Computed example of a mutant assay.
Amino acid sequence: MNTFGNIFRLTSFGESHGRGIGGIIDGCPAGLELNLELIQNDLARRKPGQSKITTQRKEPDQVEFFSGIFEGKTQGTPIAFAVWNKDQHSKDYNDLKDVFRPSHADYTYIKKYGTRDHRGGGRSSARETIARVVAGAIAKQVLAQPGISIRAYVSQVGEVKLQKSYAELDLTKAEENMVRCPDAETAEKMIARIEAASKDRDTVGGVITCVVKGVPAGWGEPVFNKLHADLGFAMLGINAVKGFEYGSGFEGTKWSGSQHNDVFVRTEEGIHTKTNYSGGIQGGISNGEDIYFNVAFKPIATLLKEQHTVDKNNNEITINPKGRHDPCVLPRAVPIVEAMAALVMADHFLLSKLNSV
């Protein structure tokens, strides 16, 4: 399954150390005047080598479009694009050709396909998410027409947790520091935690929070394509993601129903709710309130330290990998979370237009 979406669809291709990563977007409405700078900006937020707490692989990650755009506007035809790889160090992986690295996809790819590209993880590498970021950046521009915005930020690194809700924060400030946390004081603690992991040649995980504003009531399907289910499917398809919760999430399980219910009230703008523990979605359909959710990322599996494992011949061995790797995936994953949310929301936007015909 290399294709995501129902109406607004992305098919991605490419490997970490191949010629490049690319995709084909189908279902994008015609006549959309694309801002290519916004697309490139999201790629810059995802690319390696952007700060001292990310991998030092140097990639320009410049997107090249081949079709579907003429005189700056979408044509309603397939949009094909690629981002070429420039700084692969494939030799760093030669010693791992026949090795099953702990918590990687090496073993499972061999069991499924009988073969694998050992260079940087091949297709299982998070570098594939370049295609999602390009498509998501276009989806954001589709969603800007009905006034929908999507912002994500790092809310936890290891045990360092931001103790404020998104409503108390200026989310634009997330881009003012390298960890992409909108609270400067917490950001400094997060950076220190990542630097400590890196110094120990280890890694650390955490949580990204995402907020979608401006979605009207009525988006989503009542049974199998519930809006929150599609968002969960999208987020759990991102490399290193281990959990998804929306609204009150797991915390809400501790409350009684009388505490948790979102009471409807009449306002000058129409019907709203006093609280938003539902996370903007009820019965799988948006209710007009903010949609917000958390995405949990594990500590990434590539450690630059000695580990025990086995090889394809079932020999017990010790590895000490080389290469350039992120001690924490979170700062670079923020635009990926936004992109996947945008793909889901663009799909449901177009589905809602069909349902209203």
Rank of each mutant, 00 (worst) to 15 (best):
A187Q: 08
Y113Q: 10
T54D: 14
S256A: 09
S103E: 15
L227F: 10
S12A: 06
K140C: 01
R180W: 06
A229P: 07
D262M: 08
N225K: 04
P222H: 02
G249L: 01
D98N: 15
F349T: 01
L343N: 06
I138C: 00
Y93F: 15
L36P: 07
E269R: 10
S286T: 15
F13Q: 08
E159P: 06
F250E: 05
A152N: 01
M1K: 11
E185N: 11
F13A: 13
T129Y: 09
N287R: 05
H104L: 00
F13L: 09
R19V: 10
A137V: 00
A234G: 09
P102Q: 14
D311Y: 12
G270D: 12
K242M: 06
Q156R: 12
D87S: 15
P299H: 03
A135T: 01
G18V: 04
K173M: 13
I291H: 02
Q259E: 15
H17V: 06
F13V: 11
N2G: 14
T108S: 13
C210F: 09
E159K: 13
S103W: 14
N315C: 07
I110L: 12
C210P: 07
E37C: 08
N41W: 00
G323K: 02
G243D: 04
A240S: 11
M345D: 08
A82L: 12
G288T: 07
A217H: 00
G243K: 03
G279Q: 07
G270T: 13
K242D: 02
D347R: 03
S103L: 15
G232W: 09
V83R: 02
G284C: 12
V329D: 01
P182Q: 04
S90W: 12
A341N: 03
E188A: 15
K173C: 10
F233Y: 14
S356N: 14
G232V: 09
E269K: 15
W255C: 00
A167F: 05
I194H: 02
H228V: 04
A341G: 07
K189A: 15
T77A: 12
